[in-house]
Write a protein that binds this DNA or RNA. Structure first.
Lengths: 198, 198
DNA sequence: TAAGATACGGAGGCAGACTCCGGTTGGCAA
DNA sequence: TTGCCAACCGGAGTCTGCCTCCGTATCTTA
């Protein structure tokens, strides 16, 4: 599970190439979305396409390497939120982080959503900690009576990703719009006395 | 708005080929999703790829032809729902139809969402009536006090498409799951006394 | 410094989008 | 019925990107 310490350390040139590939992939994904040309990534990094594929057999593997740091941070943040006094607010904060992570690159939500179905994918494993922490936050908020008890983690993730994706589709929106959509999701579309902020 | 009556009627062979292309495209999209190979569509229809591109310059144009009937029916249904006694239930019914239309073919929600941003696209025009009818339904439900007054049509469409997309991502789900997700969206995730069905 | 394990690179095969233009044909006028 | 030509057809060709394979180059270690 720790790609940083394989049985044998990488040769110096291999290590160098791998690092440059990750850096250039990040730039390419940011510019062109997750569908960026891998040949272009290799060219930017000054290596051949064969080298890219040796290090990262699939696009998802490369994506995972690029996102690893972000995911780790989000998992840690989620665990920290468990100590937070307000369960519902903590869950909402986690959901926002989850949604934002999914919109880092254009098309990322779709890629994540697809690979999360596939338990053999590198991205799946990489997300697991983040989701597990989310589950704990959800359970706590439900025990506190602030979030409906019939909601499952799967449903919550699905909805949050759906909102993140929908937000990503509209090029004219900003972070405030994502907050607004998440608030609508949490509060619902129906008129009822607003819950006082937790 | 009426692509069926151009300045000059199509020549008999052209008409025949166009009809076969639409029929085969529907089958191919149903089988392989909206990313189905257009060369394959042309082959199934027994015409050259050039013929396909002459009739439908873009994948969206072909998609529009395939979906036209469905969209027209949904617009009509939405207008009929305006006479419905229960505004909130009527809006929810429309939302479900909207979401279901978006999941007819795998990948359709994404395609629709993308082209709806582009006012020059054929799909955009084709959806306009459907969305306009939805706006009327929303306004009515808001005037009745059943749906929060601060919700815009744009937000509602975004959220419904987000839910439809998220539902489509999970291959293990059925129509009942879509209903459940839409119910969560309408009612919200927060615990409050449930609204009595309108 | 030499051997061999490790890594590199890009040619090449494949697939699908889209264009272009020589050849074909349906439909109308005489 | 015939002849004409605008309208239409078809698929070869070009381009882009994915991914594999293997001869060559480089690093590491003894």
């Amino acid at each position: 599970m720790d790609a940083e310490t394989p049985a044998r350390p990488l040769r110096a040139d291999a290590r160098r190439n791998r690092d440059r590939l990750v850096a250039e992939a990040r730039a390419a994904f940011a510019q062109d979305g997750v569908a960026a040309s891998l040949e272009d990534v290799a060219a930017r990094a000054g290596v051949g396409i064969g080298t890219l594929y040796r290090h990262f057999p699939t696009r998802e593997a490369l994506l995972e390497a690029v996102l690893r740091e972000r995911f780790d941070a989000l998992g840690a943040e989620a665990r920290a939120l468990l100590g937070h006094a307000a369960p519902r607010a903590a869950l909402l904060t986690w959901a926002r982080g989850f949604a934002e992570a999914g919109t880092t690159f254009r098309g990322l939500t779709a890629a994540l959503s697809a690979t999360l179905q596939d338990e053999t994918s590198a991205l799946h494993a990489s997300c697991a900690a983040m989701r597990t922490a989310g589950e704990a936050l959800l359970t706590r908020a439900q025990h506190g009576g602030e979030i409906r008890a019939d909601l499952t983690v799967a449903e919550l993730s699905t909805l949050v990703f759906g909102v993140a994706w929908a937000h990503e589709q509209n090029p004219r929106t900003g972070p405030a719009d994502l907050d607004r959509l998440l608030a609508l999701l949490f509060d619902g579309l129906t008129t009822r006395p607003p819950r006082t902020p937790a």
